[in-house]
Design a protein around this nucleic acid. Structure first.
Lengths: 192, 192
DNA sequence: CATATTCTGAAATGATCATTTCAGAATATG
DNA sequence: CATATTCTGAAATGATCATTTCAGAATATG
C-alpha cells in the first residue's frame, strides 16, 4: 500500500554508466550522475545506494552485456574458427568505431588496484573472455584450422592482452590502419 | 636580493608522482600531494603551479626516465637482437616486480581522452618506444636474427600493445607465470 | 649589517563534494 | 474512496576540494 519507484532502474544505470565511462569513477560527480539519470539523489540513495554501489552496478551492467555477446557467439552455427575470426575482426572494429576506450579496461587501470569488488568483477569478465577464446581455439585445433602445436591457453591470454593494448594504441594515435594491421597479423598468426 | 626556494623541486616532483601513480589524477587530492611533497600549497602554487601543472610535470618526469632508459640501451655494445631480447625480458620482469601498473598506461586510460596536453606527452613517449623497437628490430633483421619476412613497423606496434595488455593481465590476475609465458612466446615469435 | 625582496606557514576562501533530511506528493491496498 | 506507506524534490548538511591571501620569517645582495 504505497507508491512504487518511478524511474526505470535499468535505463538509469545505463545513463550513469555512460557518465562513469566518459569521466571515470573519481572524475564523475554525483551531480553529473543524477543529472544524466534524471533522478534526484534521494531517489538514488533510496534505491541503488551510494556512489560506489552505483558504480559497481554500472561495471556489472557493462560486463553483463559483454557476457551476453559472447554467449550469443557461442550459439552460432558457423565453425568455431569462423566465430573466432569474426570475433577478432569485430573486436578490432569496435575499438575503431568508438570515441572512447573499453570501459572495463579504463576501470581496471583507474580503480581496480584499490578496489577489490571492482577488481573481482573485472577478473570474472576477463576469465569469461578467456574461457570463450580458449574454447574456440581448442575447437579450431580439432577442426584442423589451427595447428596442433599452438597452445590454446597461451593464445587466449595473448589475444586478451593484445586487445587491451590496441585500445591504448588507438586512444593515443587514432590510427585505424595500425589496429587493423595488428588484427590481421594475429589472425594470420593463428591460421598457420 | 631575496630568499631562494627551500625545497628540492625534483625530489618534490618525484614524491608527487608516486601519489598520482597510486591514486590517479582525480583520486589524488592536493593535501595528499603536499603532504607527500612536504611543502605548503602556497609554495607549490608559487613555483610549479596548480594541480594540473604539477600532474603534467609528473607525467613528464615519468616519461623522461623511460626515455633515458631506452637511450642507455641503445648505447650498449651487445648486438641489436640481444638488446631487444633483454629489453623484452626486463619489460616482463618490471611488470611482475611492481605492485602497481605502469603510470603512463594508467594515465592514458584515466585522463588522456579528455586532456590534450597529457595525451601529447604520452603519445611522444609511445612514439619514442616505437622508434626504439623499430630500430632494434630492423637491425636484428640486418643481423640475420629476425626473418626478412617480418615487418619492423608491425612488430614494434605489436610489442607496445602486447606489453600494455600484460599490465592489465597482471593487475587482474597477479599471475607471473602467464606474463613470462607470453614474453617467451613473443621472443620465440620474432626469433623465427 | 641593512634592507628589499621572496619564500613559507597558517588560515581563509568559496566552490563543490557525497550524503541526509523532511515535507508533501503520489499511490497500492483494503 | 480513505489511508498507510513510500517515493520525490528541494534544501540542508558538514566535509573536503583546489586555490588565495598575507603576515612574518628568511636571505641574497649591496
Amino acid at each position: 500500500m504505497a507508491r512504487s519507484v518511478e524511474f526505470n532502474e535499468e535505463e538509469a544505470i545505463q545513463k550513469a554508466m555512460n557518465v562513469f565511462w566518459e569521466k571515470g569513477y573519481n572524475g564523475a560527480s554525483l551531480r553529473d550522475l543524477t543529472d544524466a539519470m534524471k533522478i534526484n539523489s534521494s531517489s538514488l540513495y533510496n534505491t541503488i545506494g551510494d556512489k560506489h554501489e552505483l558504480f559497481i552496478r554500472c561495471v556489472k551492467y557493462y560486463t553483463d552485456i559483454r557476457k551476453r555477446d559472447l554467449d550469443r557467439r557461442l550459439k552460432s552455427h558457423k565453425s568455431s574458427f569462423e566465430v573466432l575470426v569474426e570475433y577478432i575482426n569485430e573486436s578490432v572494429e569496435s575499438i575503431i568505431g568508438k570515441e572512447n576506450s573499453c570501459m572495463a579496461i579504463k576501470t581496471a587501470f583507474e580503480v581496480a588496484t584499490n578496489d577489490q569488488r571492482v577488481k573481482d568483477i573485472l577478473k570474472a569478465d576477463s576469465d569469461y573472455a578467456y574461457r570463450f577464446l580458449h574454447s574456440l581455439i581448442s575447437k579450431s585445433i580439432e577442426e584442423g584450422k589451427i595447428s596442433k602445436k599452438e597452445d590454446p591457453e597461451l593464445l587466449a591470454d595473448y589475444f586478451i592482452s593484445t586487445w587491451t593494448g590496441w585500445n591504448e594504441a588507438y586512444l593515443l594515435h587514432k590510427d585505424p590502419v595500425k589496429i587493423r594491421k595488428m588484427g590481421q597479423y594475429f589472425i594470420k598468426l593463428i591460421s598457420g
